[in-house]
Amino acid sequence: MPAVLTVTNLSKQYNHNLVVDNISYSLHSGEAVGLLGANGAGKSTMIKCILGLVHPSHGSTSHPDSSPSYLPELPQLPTSLSALALLRFKCSALGLNPALAEKSLMEVNLSTDSHKQPISQYSKGMRQRAALAMTLCGNPKLVCLDEPMSGLDALGRVEVLSLLKEKKEQGAAFLMSSHIVSDMVQLCDRVLIMAHGKICEDVLIQDHSLEEAKALESKLAQWTIK
């Protein structure tokens, strides 16, 4: 299966601080890879390098089939407009059917009443859902998620995880950074443990169980202390 994302010897240095250190991996269609690490491990910077928001100091990233869709850690949306207007803009800019906008909002269970409300009136969870709808609108082949569950309650997390699994089954590839190990284990096939800008361990997820999540947490603690 061809890779939808290839990262080759990627490094990013800010002044004398090496934030991402010579990272290489690839991601295939229908695969979900998790990025696990303490704050400052370089997860978000690596995602931003892939998206082209940050210029790598060395190395390269390639996503030949499609451009990655992105959900930032703290999604900021234009608050004077509604979520529907935002998604319609995406559909219009990408030449997609405008009806997809409403469909995407329904997928993330954002109530129909709120579709036309200004985003300034949304709660934190509603903003997170709107941002997720924006990310998944148009069925992108490669999705980069930076803390996708932040701001969501327990039920919301279950709903979003189920939606992401559905998209994965449809062939979307996910690169997901999260601090919630249990959520990551449920979605991902592989988890890359990062510390000090490097990939310390590439863990294959076998049965998506809670025991695996616990084992992963202890591995993370071990690498973070080192």
């Binding site: 998206l51 928001l53 451009s67 703290l74 949306l77 995406k90 990408l94």
Partner: peptide
């Protein structure tokens, strides 16, 4: 300021644009 400081521009740039 919202676009650059808060990162709203990433919505547009990752379309891609």
């Amino acid at each position: 300021v919202r676009d650059v400081e808060q990162g709203i521009c990433s919505i547009f740039l990752t379309l891609p644009m």
